[in-house]
Design a protein around this nucleic acid. Structure first.
Lengths: 208, 208
DNA sequence: ACAGGATATGAGTCTTCGCTCACATTTTCT
DNA sequence: AGAAAATGTGAGCGAAGACTCATATCCTGT
């Protein structure tokens, strides 16, 4: 009879004074620490509050649930990294298409090499927290922008870019890099990977 | 102070009589149903036992934990699908390399289109249950076999296949298909996707 | 037929955890 | 200074669920 209730992830109230902002930040930092050290399941609200040096009560003033806490963390993480990627694309505007793509891929590989344990937790929790849609939206955005910049670099700005091209481009990159990062086969040179991937995709897009 | 204990996933005892084998099967089937209908978190051992028409006690005779139950389900799922993929590769042995690859990709897309809800649960739980290594091992196996067959079909059996080639080949395929399946952009034609992906990879492998 | 192993049962124990609330403290504003 | 608003506290309630165990039933071999 009970409808399947998804946990609310909207912040309960906004912090106004500096002191409460500090509390919220402390909570988020503590959540990160506990997530990495203990994993999602062992991260209880009580434990998080204690680690943050506050109380459960305070936690529930700002976050309606543990999921909300993690959702906020994921949101910040996604937002930050997508900004970095978009910036990287802009920064390579004067390069040739192959170089631009190769540098972008190298950059993402290096990005994914950082913070492995936390990233692992996020990857596991993104679906449960319902952040998949958000990730996809941003990935598509990046794919679109990257595709546009590549065509521009090859002097073919006018040509239409199909949804398929953008999709294959960004999903190939992210899919392969995710695999390379998580699975980490040590005998796989990252520079070479970036080179081969970009060559393959440049040819796929007819941009050499 | 407590060491992070991973839940044991080895079967507690093996069923010997026909009756107990039936119990185990019933438990696994019930787990599947509940997983699909209620999701992982709401699937409690009590509920599973009830749905299977047995008792919790019986469940714990054969599975030391809920994780063990799901691990067994995932194991069967992985094993079954990898067999299908390997069979598909063998079945295409007389085709040209491009055709073989295209048909393989189409096959995997169609495979991933089935059982979406259950597959979603599995994808979410594979990391937590510790089955990632197993998935990777099998994916690499498939990549190796596929790569070999493609080279053979192009009359280049003798040429060495690098680890990089196998890696890019299989991870591109699986990564893109996973994205296409989960994200399901409806304006993306699956046949066309298979065609473009295979063309791209055939060129990457220098097999046209 | 009967012993002994295999299997089944499910009420109950124990633990964990999410979350509330009555109350205390701090900050802000006039 | 004093009132009102914002913020902080943590013991404890209630729910949920993982897992056990004493007991009962079934099966197999002799």
């Amino acid at each position: 009879m009970t409808a399947p209730k998804k946990p609310q992830t909207l912040p309960r109230k906004k912090a106004q004074q500096a002191r409460s902002v500090a509390t919220v930040e402390a909570l988020l930092e503590a959540t990160t620490r506990i997530l990495v050290r203990e994993g999602y399941d062992r991260a209880s609200t009580n434990r998080i509050a204690e680690a943050a040096g506050t109380s459960v009560g305070s936690l529930y003033q700002y976050f309606p649930s543990k999921e909300a806490l993690v959702a906020e963390l994921i949101e910040r993480h996604i937002a930050q990294e997508s900004l970095l990627m978009l910036a990287k694309i802009e920064a390579g505007a004067q390069l040739s298409a192959p170089q631009m793509l190769q540098e972008f891929i190298s950059f993402v590989i290096q990005l994914y090499g950082r913070n492995k344990p936390l990233r692992k937790v996020f990857i596991e929790q993104v679906p449960k927290i319902g952040k998949m849609q958000r990730v996809w939206t941003i990935e598509n955005e990046i794919g679109e922008k990257l595709c546009g910049s590549l065509f521009a670099a090859a002097g073919r700005s006018e040509e239409p870019k199909t949804a398929m091209q953008q999709f294959v481009l960004i999903k190939t990159i992210m899919g392969v890099i995710r695999a390379a990062t998580l699975q980490k086969p040590q005998n796989l040179d990252h520079e070479l990977l970036a080179l081969e991937l970009s060559a393959m995709l440049i040819h796929y897009l007819n941009l050499e």
